[in-house]
Computed example of a mutant assay.
Amino acid sequence: MRDFFTISENACRVPFADLCKRNEEYRTYFVRRTYEASQCIHPQGTKISCFGIVESGILKAVNNTINGVEQCHSYFEAKDLFPEFLYFTGRKNYAYTLIAEKKSTVLWIPVHVLEEMLEKDQGLMYALLLYVCQRGLKDQLYLNCLNYQTIRERIAYWIVGLHNLSPVESVLMPGSQLILANMLHVSRSSLNQELKLMQRDGYFKIKGREMYGLDEEKLNALL
């Protein structure tokens, strides 16, 4: 049991993406690619032959409705892994179209290589388990935001939820306000206006993408 807890503590300190990139034994199998904004990386139905780790930028998973309207249902940011949910639940093909939302760099690891890495390294396996759990909680967080009617309430719930997942002094916003607006299912202009009002009212301060000086008591009072 002592060995397990040692593994757990080490895995907690180092994100899964970083542990993968440190692996010298399999590093020669890794392939790094850069994609321009709006570039289609994998159309829906593409066979899953590699896992990807986002190193920079942001990707989105989209499907088109019968009327041709694009629906985005997930984003992958720096240090995110994909398509782990599809592959480990038995899907062998992409169930969505993968697109670079911004200029992005992805580290690709062949499926059989990552499976072998996980089989040989318990610490890496544990780090993956932690990542999958945190990813699931984040996805649930964005879904639960829809239970709140006002933009201010959704912003507050998002901030409190992220802070609970990772208790740090500040919260980092996604790559752009448009991405956050899509995640919260509000318009970009309405989100921008509400962020300015909440900053004026002392809920937080904003510098670039960082939200700091969080007043947790005021934020929780909205929920």
Results as ranks from 00 to 15, higher is better:
C72V: 13
L118S: 07
I99R: 07
E24H: 09
C40H: 12
I99P: 03
L86I: 01
P43E: 13
S104G: 09
P110W: 04
R13W: 03
E115M: 06
R91P: 06
M117P: 14
Y96Q: 04
P15V: 10
V113W: 07
R33I: 08
Y35I: 00
N67H: 08
T65W: 05
F76T: 00
D139V: 05
K102Q: 07
D121R: 10
R13G: 05
R135H: 08
A100P: 08
L137N: 04
S38C: 12
V113G: 08
V54W: 02
L81H: 09
F51N: 13
Q134N: 01
K92Q: 04
F88S: 01
S56V: 03
D80K: 00
E36A: 15
A100G: 07
G45R: 10
W108H: 10
E119I: 06
K47Y: 14
N67S: 09
K103V: 07
R22Y: 10
D18W: 06
K103D: 04
E115P: 06
R22H: 10
V62L: 09
I41Q: 12
Y94H: 15
K47I: 13
Y96E: 02
Y35H: 03
N67Y: 09
Q71V: 08
C50H: 15
T65S: 04
L114D: 02
T105P: 01
N144R: 15
L130F: 08
Y26S: 05
A78H: 03
A78V: 03
K92E: 03
V106Y: 01
F76A: 01
V111T: 06
G45C: 12
T105K: 01
L128A: 13
L141C: 06
F51Y: 15
I41N: 15
P110R: 07
L114K: 05
G52Y: 06
L124K: 14
Y35W: 05
Y75I: 00
Q134Y: 00
I58R: 10
R32G: 02
Y75H: 01
I66Q: 15
L59Y: 06
D18I: 12
V31L: 01
P83S: 00
N64H: 13
I109S: 07
E84C: 12
G52S: 13
K102N: 04
T89Y: 00
I41F: 14
P43D: 11
Y75R: 00
P15R: 13
F30E: 00
I7A: 10
V106P: 01
L114V: 02
D121Q: 14
P43Y: 08
L81F: 15
P110A: 03
E84F: 13
T34W: 08
N63K: 10
L124Q: 11
V62N: 10
G68M: 05
R32F: 02
L59D: 03
K92N: 05
